[in-house]
């Protein structure tokens, strides 16, 4: 299940939904990404997240389907926030369940690696002096290519 939203999310509630009446899975892996105070040499006050409505959801759905082809997985949840976010706020949640831990660990990392290189989100950061669009990182692309 995929949600793109302005609102914050509650990790405890998301975790409960992943395990509720889920008798077949023995592993749950969750990842949360936050807004950091320093990026690319600048002190960050906050950022604005823009996206491409419609394509974002489609791209995330395709990443989930790819993950399900690679590993036997139980439940998958992705939440990505958009709009204005301050330092330390939550940006993204990925939760994956599986029978044993290896699949859930791998799939969570796979989903994040492809979310960062394929899903149409863009960050515009605000530092003390100015606002600027964040550059895509070569290291993120290298990481996604490893799969």
């Amino acid at each position: 299940m995929i949600q793109v939203q302005h609102d914050d999310f509650d990790l405890a509630k998301e975790y409960s939904a992943l395990i509720e009446s889920n008798h077949s899975d023995g592993a749950v892996v969750t990842f949360v990404g936050l807004v950091r105070d320093f990026n690319q040499g600048n002190r960050i006050l906050g950022l604005n997240l823009e996206h491409y409505p419609g394509m974002t959801e489609k791209a995330l759905q395709e990443i989930v389907l790819d993950a399900k082809k690679r590993w036997e997985l139980g439940r998958i949840k992705i939440i990505h926030r958009i709009g204005q976010l301050a330092v330390n706020e939550q940006i993204v949640f990925v939760g994956v369940t599986s029978k044993h831990r290896a699949n859930a660990f791998a799939a969570t990392e796979f989903i994040m690696d492809f979310l960062k290189t394929k899903a149409p989100f863009w960050k515009k950061e605000t530092s003390e002096n100015h606002q600027y669009w964040v550059d895509a990182k070569q290291s993120d692309h290298k990481k996604a290519q490893q799969w």
Partner: peptide
């Protein structure tokens, strides 16, 4: 709403989007 390259054929009614490399997550 799917990533493509320059060789992709276009037809009437298509929605094409141009954007910078993505930076979400």
């Amino acid at each position: 709403q799917s990533l493509r390259d320059d060789s992709m054929p276009l037809k009437q009614g298509d929605e094409v989007a141009f954007f910078p490399p993505v930076t979400g997550g």
